[in-house]
Design a protein around this nucleic acid. Structure first.
Length: 583
RNA sequence: CGGGGAGUAGCGCAGUCUGGCAGCGCAUCUGCUUUGGGAGCAGAGGGUCGCAGGUUCGAAUCCUGUCUCCCCGACCA
């Protein structure tokens, strides 16, 4: 094998962050030449980056294969008809997320953002009998999503590498078994990658289905907020999380409802200033949404919510089975309430408005709400006495300090990067695409499905987001581009040349990959800075003690802790650590 | 989609207001010295100033159009 000499690796580092890098992982990978941006959300993976991605892929493959999953490869190009069959074409085009175009004959095609349709079709033609099930198929492939706003380097790209797997079972119970098996596969994968992560309950979103969990890499810079409880180990995506919220304040005496002038008071903050003795838990805001329903019809929905709480649009959208949900426009608010924005309330809404309430209104008495007239609010309003309580559902967002639903424990809000997501799909796709099997009694039944995704390129970015310092990246050993960074101080010095070559060859022979900095005319300082930047976990420095077979040993993660040891001892340590890390 | 900002050497930027030789730092190349935390000196190469059109004796600079990139908002009444 040819030695991995840095001087031959097209190795270029930048001293400054690129101007467009917003997060550390992106800036560091760009500075180290791992990544090069080609267009918004589209990146070239350089040779070092590709080694990392292959490491991750190797772990992903290994764990899937061990669990009996079958690897295959599906096309990236997909015909529209397939997506019309599942009914997702319009939704994805509406969301603007689908790359689609016409081929030379005028047929519409898209670049696959995911592969449920293709996979279900494949299985529909391939599977006839219960004897062929269960089966779990997977692929590692480039996915395409025209993100509304690509950002954060590899975190949210428009083209990215994803592992997607699909399970096929004969019953709901068997589907849950496959799902549980994949949960374990996912835990093993992220553990083996050397990442600290939290599995959380999740909303199933556009893909549809019932049970769903996300795997979040713990990182303060993560895009997603998650609700976790140390005491009960409850963990859920904020879109899904539920909690017991603090009880509202109660009025001292029951007063009749009355309307008060509240000029310019459009927010709870304004109203708190106006009525200083009224607690915010006795203010109910009414938020208006414009909704497009799944059948294409449109409407306006008003949702009541306690002043100190916030509405969770994902929960609301799911309950309404909405295709689109956004805050109502100024005009829509005026048409619904007859008032300027800021004075909406449940009493006297236009008849076309559907009124709902978040469960945070439960038990609130003598409350304030908008007057549906510019510059007025009602006070001392009671459900049951002054108006009927509208349909009340959990549309709330949990907040830090809430109590968990079952058991004793306080919820904390932390952040994470979603690197994996698993779903129980049920029969949604199999029914739409007629993927059925014959059971023991020759009865035709739809196949029960699950689907399971891992953002491979995102795993790499999140590893850096989680592990870096001011000098550069710190790769976990299992997924590092190389296990050992062999830093030769003075290339051309006979003793150093000989010892470096020996260390390189012996480690490679033992299956440990080595990046050998053999560059001439590069100062020691520059070599150390570059080594810090690329973050290879194990470091062996060949320098002044080369003649006596002495080297310096250090770990990138423990900068500053350097040991002078023999070359043989260093090799032994490197081999052992690489093996322990499963390389 | 809306709002803001930016496109000048591989990277980071100045120059644009007030039109007149296209600059600086890093990187690259050559030579000499240097070699355990981004070395020094001397020299060199590298640019259709995003693109198209216009104004002008003359445009990186002014005008029009266009493309691309980045940030903020997608928000609680």
């Amino acid at each position: 094998m040819a030695a991995m000499r840095l001087s031959r690796l097209l190795f270029v580092t930048l001293r400054e962050d690129p101007a467009d890098a917003e997060v550390r992982s992106h800036a560091l990978m760009a500075r180290a030449g791992f990544l090069q941006k080609l267009a918004a959300g589209i990146y070239v993976y350089g040779p070092m980056m590709w080694r990392v991605l292959r490491r991750i892929e190797h772990i992903v493959r290994d764990e899937h294969d061990k669990a009996g999953c079958l690897e295959m490869l599906m096309p990236a190009l997909q015909p529209r008809e397939l997506w019309d069959t599942s009914g997702r074409w319009d939704r994805y085009v509406n969301d603007g997320i689908l790359f689609h175009f016409k081929d030379r004959r005028g047929s519409e095609v898209c670049l696959g953002p995911t592969h449920e349709e293709v996979m279900t079709t494949y299985v529909q033609r391939q599977v006839q009998s219960y004897k062929q099930l269960p089966v779990i198929l997977y692929q590692i492939q480039t996915k395409f999503r025209d993100e509304i706003r690509p950002r954060f380097g590899l975190m949210r790209g428009r083209e990215f590498i994803m592992k997607d797997a699909y399970s096929f079972d004969t019953s709901a119970e068997a589907m849950v078994e496959s799902y549980q098996r994949m949960r374990e596969v996912y835990r093993s994968i992220f553990s083996r990658c050397g990442l600290r992560f939290t599995p959380v309950q999740a909303d199933s979103g556009a893909i549809g289905g019932s049970g769903s969990e996300e795997f979040m890499v713990d990182a303060d810079t993560g895009e997603d907020a998650i609700a976790v409880c140390r005491a009960t180990s409850y963990a859920a995506n904020l879109e899904k999380a539920v909690s017991r919220i603090p009880a509202p304040a109660q009025p001292a005496e029951e007063l009749p409802m009355h309307k008060e002038p509240t000029p310019h008071a459009r927010s709870c903050e304004d109203l708190l200033a106006l009525f200083p003795e009224l607690p915010i838990t006795r203010m109910l805001k009414t938020v208006l949404y414009a909704v497009v329903y799944a059948d294409g019809s449109e409407g306006v929905v008003a949702v009541m919510c306690r002043g100190d709480r916030e509405i969770n649009e994902v929960k609301l959208s799911n309950h309404l089975q909405a295709l689109q949900l956004e805050l109502a426009s100024e005009e829509q608010v005026k048409a619904a309430t007859g008032a300027e924005v800021g004075f909406a309330g449940p009493i006297g809404l236009a008849s076309h408005v559907r009124l709902l309430a978040d469960q945070s209104v439960e038990g609130v008495k003598g409350f304030l709400c908008g007057g549906n007239e510019t510059g007025t609010h009602y006070l001392d309003v009671y459900f049951g006495r002054d108006l009927e309580q509208p349909e009340t559902v959990d549309f709330g967002t949990v907040q830090a300090g809430d109590q968990v639903m079952d058991g004793e424990g306080e919820i904390e809000i932390t952040r994470g990067i979603e690197v994996g997501h698993i779903f129980q799909l049920g029969t949604k796709y199999s029914e739409a695409m007629d993927a059925t099997f014959s059971d023991e009694n020759q009865k035709t039944k739809p196949i029960w499905m699950g689907c399971y995704g891992i953002g491979v390129s995102r795993v790499a970015a999140s590893a850096i987001e989680q592990n870096h310092d001011e000098h550069g990246m710190i790769w976990p050993l299992p997924i590092a581009p190389f296990a050992v960074h062999l830093v030769q101080m003075k290339a051309g010095n006979a003793e150093q040349d000989a010892l470096s070559l020996e260390i390189h060859d012996k480690l490679e022979a033992a299956g440990v990959d080595v990046l050998w900095d053999d560059r001439k005319k590069v100062s020691p300082g520059a070599k150390f800075k570059d080594a810090d930047l690329v973050g290879i976990p194990l470091r062996i420095v060949v320098g002044r003690d080369a003649a006596s077979r002495g080297v310096e040993w250090s770990l990138r993660a423990q900068a500053g802790e350097k040991e002078a040891i023999s070359a043989d001892e260093a090799m032994q340590r490197a081999i052992q650590m690489a093996q322990e890390a499963g390389r």
